[in-house]
Amino acid sequence: MDKNEYKKIIKYKSPKENKLKNIIISFFVGGLCGVIGQLLTDVFNKCLHFSINDSYMLTMVSFVLIGSILTGLGFFDKVVSFSKCGLIVPTTGFAHAMTSAAMDTRNEGLVKGIGSGIFKLTGSIILYGIVAAFFISLIKVIVG
């Protein structure tokens, strides 16, 4: 049997529906996050009378709180292994990355451990977010 034939058989035999299943699960879990976020926003806006921008901000903070506490209790990795991107892309994933980095480096002390390690995973998000935002708004200001 030559190599190409072997590759064909491997391609045919390896599970394909797994990828599709992951994609569908992340779509539904992500959508559910959006609906819960909208529900929380409506509660903050209509029941507690915050302005709409503050409601969006408080929803974000609630998601951060949920993500951090789940990470602290050790549940987050188990949930993510099922829900995949559905919980990584919402703000919970950002909170998880920061909290887990802080927890991993905590044994090395407050300054050298948590202090320098807390941005280990989220540092790239903050760095490229700020740099990209600065240049995009500069371009928009100059062009527009």
Binding site: I23, G30, A97, Y128
Partner: peptide
Amino acid sequence: CGLVCLIGQIILEETKLTPGHLNT
């Protein structure tokens, strides 16, 4: 929200990027 997560999952499945890359 589902579509954003779906696109993210496709990127993770089809490339070798980590969730850190994806969020960036």
